[in-house]
Design a protein around this nucleic acid. Sequence first.
RNA 1: GUCGGGGUGGCGAAAUGGUAUACGCGCAAGCUUGAGGGGCUUGUGGUCGCAAGACUGUGCAGGUUCAAGUCCUGUCCCCGACACCA
Length: 762
Amino acid sequence: MVNRYQPQEFEKKWAEQWKKEKINIFNPDSNKEKYYVLVELPYTSGDLHIGHWFTFTHPDVLSRFKRMNGFNVFFPMGYDAFGLPAENAAIKRKIHPKDWTMKNIETMTKQFQQMGTMIDWDWMTITCLPEYYRWNQWIFLKMYEKGLAFRGKTLSNWCPSCQTVIANENIENGKCWRCGETVVQKDVEQWFLKITDYAEQLIWDDKPKVDWPTSVRTGQNNWIGKKSGINIDYPVKNTEETITCFTTAPVNFGMTFIVVAPEHDLVKKIISGEIKVDSKCKKEIEEYYKKAQEKTEMDRLMEGKKKTGVFTGLYATNRIAGWDVPVWVADFAIGNVGTGAVQGCPGHDYKDFEFAKKFNLPIIRVVVGEDGDQSEIKESRQIIVKGMKGKMVNSKFLNGLEFSEGLEKTMDYAEEKGWGKRVFSYHIRDWSISRQRYWGTPVPVIHCIDCGIVPVPENNLPIELPYEVDFTPHGKPPLATNEKWLNVKCPKCGKPAKRDAETLDTFFDSAWYWFRYLSPQYEKGPFDELRASRLTPVDVYFGGSEHTLGHTLYARFFTKFFQSLKMLNYDEFALKRIQHGIVLGPDGSKMSKSKGNVINPDDVVIEYGSDTARLYLCFMMPYEGTGAWSTQTIAGVNRFLGRIWKIYQEQYQRLNIKDQKEDERLIIKLKKTIKKVTEEISNIKMNTSIAAMMEFLNDFEKSLAPNPYSLTPEHAKQFLQILAPFAPFMTEEIWRNVFGEKESIHLSTWPKVEGEISFDPP
RNA sequence: GUCGGGGUGGCGAAAUGGUAUACGCGCAAGCUUGAGGGGCUUGUGGUCGCAAGACUGUGCAGGUUCAAGUCCUGUCCCCGACACCA
């Protein structure tokens, strides 16, 4: 009688035993080749859900596989522990954010350990502890020293619910990425990082030296938004003024007006009276300006694409085409996009067309080639000009050229004449890092009335976050409520001064954490540079696609900054990036408590055990995929493990039988399977690895009917080994208790298949 | 609108240009069992046929090739990101 597969009987036992045997201890000084597997550090929300298991299982399988292949695998773990949710939860439940966070870390760690990962928890790094954030402060000061951290007053994205500024990258559809509140514009003085200085370096070229998905590379490039174009100057008649318009496509022969944003200098000068305009126009402009000021950027968008605007009474000269155009103020032009002024070419641009239509401005469509042959127009959209006054010009200037060629020629011509200057424009803006909240890294500067901004001397770090503050939101930064902490002496002149009461964006924390993993207790710098030179870059970085424009971009920025400080000798921190999808609820929609479709890993472990959960998460879909949890498929995967269990219990408990002949075909099949699984795990295709093993099991079972010893124990052990990264508990149980091995299967050597496998088993 | 990724059985999904649908789920029939929502065996793209088999088949329309799910051109649809960006 063979006992059934009951993982609950041995999974706990092995977790304990592995701890005792220290099989998962990472040795940084090993002379084996390094392999660094990194997963984005989870936020300390407190509840570990099945998504975490999904995210971590594939990397764990890869790590175990690499270890069995002789690599010194570093698979560390940490927590992203600062941030608003902790503070909000604390306000709601009247617990201190620190206590809330530390308690969550404890629970989550316990749950994580059930997964049976090979993570060595001794390297755990927690971002809210002074030994970590002290180095945030150190990095900040270095950036300040290099002019990369600066204080600026600008119109910023403000979340009224979080009472803090947030970065562009963290706005989703005009809403705060964390709380979902509509973001408004507010003039705030705050700290920025000059990521724009690194814009060029952050652009991906066509054949990058690291293996990152195209979606990330093009996404980041679009976000950086480098565009080649020209700033063309338009002298405003009867004034000393010039309006400069940026354009990537100077269709000046179709240009019939100019629009300036309400924030444009020209508008300010008109209102101040510096530029004289018709009094009726002036009045309208003043009103329009006032209205625009009341609107947030979001309001402007919300009002849809309804074009509004007022005429200034001024005209500017379009020197390229040789005519004058009226100048309008309209809020579809945005102050900080381009030059804040748009040249209106309604025959070629849909927004310009709408505007021209509404205010009855002429619409000219430029055509190239013979007599306005429409078929020659390649670059522009078709626009209906029916019923509008307008015309088509067959541009002498562009005649006989491809449209894009003609635009190039226009730019050269304008530049030659001194009417414009070729420039590159970028979409990326400087990264706002100030947060008017409590639970974050204090900005290490002191504000002195006499000396201004004084950086905290390096040996005074860390500036510890005080425990006692009033962190309920009331418009004033919470840190400013602790007077004792706030008031200090100026390090320069010794007079009374105040600390900066803001904290750093948590994306700052996560922009370099994988370096800290290398030496979490290191005292001489943010990380041990010698160790970094040996153990980094990261070989594979696993994470979510939501970090394409935020986290991974910042992380690349910081890496390049460290390189500039000569702390590193490379500029891309991860050789490969893989982004996971989402495990949906059994009903096919996103898991949420309110829908009641949440799969709790603890329940799955009770029902099927960790191995089945791991195997299922690897088998259900590719890592990049998004799909629903299936209670039926997981049962099928459980059956697969049960069948293996049964065979090994039945066949290999009695090892004394000789005179049996191995099944040649099965051995070839085994070799093929080993080869396939080896390749598939290397490519992080866990679903097809498992499929290959299932195929083998089918053949194995069939072969047993005529020949109960179709595989020798040696070969049977090989199959167990290739299954081990997926099902670490069951394979260990069989390895040791059926085959009587003394050392863990996870420290055994991955079976090698030499040469070609010629024979095709039927 | 722009940019990225995709459309393959009832479902999740496989296929270095070379037998399309591996593997799993589901379903059907049979066996096992005191019983079974358990275990095992077989079958399972569609149409026609008792059958052997024939035809057809990877969103749609063309093309390249001895050979196309895969390469090329056009087109439709879905998902994701960005977006009054000039």
